[in-house]
């Protein structure tokens, strides 16, 4: 087929409606497995089946009565929140300083702070495990927290720097010129303006942390297992709807987190993160 005929063919068929139909199919592909898992979690059967037969909450009951699941869920939530807080404590001041920095290397430093995002997590996790063991921390809650903070830090730096770059220095300058101290400029002027960036970055970091298997895996022990680690171990041995229930619980938690952030800041802040 010649180029001209191919072009003609596409012109005739590649209409706007064709594109819309394609996009609809695309989103069916994206959401099918998710809808299926939520469906399976409510099944009344003792095996995985879709469409689910009957309706029951027995698999949620199973999830909440199985200690390995509930304990790991608590560890996951603790680590997600604490690593986001640590990431903010280290990352927010650095992002603010970098945006207004006159140092030539500022761009390079920003790239460096974002570099953990480009590293396969399994490499970071593997390397950190041996390093932290050498430091005497070994497999512990603190090690897990440090490892997760290494990953949460770049997300927070990126979103906060993105928001702060759009803030004119004049607000802070006016406040300072009117006699506000450095601290009160920070608390009353800078902080309220960058708050959406902090919350969006922290939310992103928490979502990544909750789903982080490659790092958590290396630091797993009975007291530091996170939910994905326990789910993977379970899935390697069994194939039953308990995994669907665990997934649904995790999804509900993520949605609650999203709604909380939305109430505080509005979702517009999420866009620079994407």
């Amino acid at each position: 087929m010649s180029w001209e005929r191919f072009a003609y063919f596409l012109d005739k068929t590649g209409s706007r409606w064709g594109l819309i139909a394609y996009v609809v199919l695309f989103f069916i592909y994206i959401f099918a497995p998710i809808v299926i898992v939520v469906g399976v979690s409510f099944t009344a059967t003792s095996y995985v089946t879709f469409p689910p037969e009957g309706f029951s909450l027995q698999w949620f009951d199973r999830f909440f009565s199985y200690d390995a699941f509930t304990n790991s869920l608590i560890v996951s939530i603790e680590i997600a929140i604490l690593s986001a807080i640590c990431g903010c404590l280290i990352g927010v001041p650095a992002a603010l300083a970098l945006v207004r920095s006159r140092i030539k290397a500022a761009n390079m430093i920003t790239t460096f702070l974002l570099s953990p995002l480009s590293m396969p997590l399994i490499v970071t996790g593997f390397a950190l495990l041996f390093f932290l063991s050498w430091m005497g921390l070994g497999v512990s809650f603190v090690s897990l927290l440090i490892a997760h903070t290494v990953v949460s830090l770049p997300y927070i730096v990126r979103t906060v720097a993105g928001v702060y770059r759009g803030v004119s220095p004049e607000y802070e300058e006016s406040a300072a010129a009117l006699g506000a101290t450095r601290w009160s400029v920070f608390v009353h002027v800078t902080l309220p303006m960058i708050k959406p960036g902090i919350f969006a970055g922290a939310l992103f970091a928490m979502l990544i942390s909750i789903d982080n298997l490659p790092i958590s895996y290396f630091f797993s022990s009975t007291s530091t297992n996170t939910l994905p680690v326990v789910m993977l171990a379970y899935l390697e041995n069994q194939f039953d709807p308990a995994i669907a229930a665990a997934s649904t619980v995790q999804l509900i938690l993520a949605v609650i987190g999203l709604l909380l952030v939305e109430r505080i800041t509005g979702l517009d802040a999420m866009t620079p993160a994407g």
Binding site: A32, P33, I34, I36, V37, V40, V48, F50, L207, I210, D211, L213, L227, P228, M231, L232, L235, F239, I243, A244, S247, T248, Q250, L251, A254, V255, L258
Partner: peptide, 15 residues
Amino acid sequence: LLTSIIMRTFGWQVL
């Protein structure tokens, strides 16, 4: 992004 990678993989396993 709100769903876990295990959830989506499990969904394909079911399919």
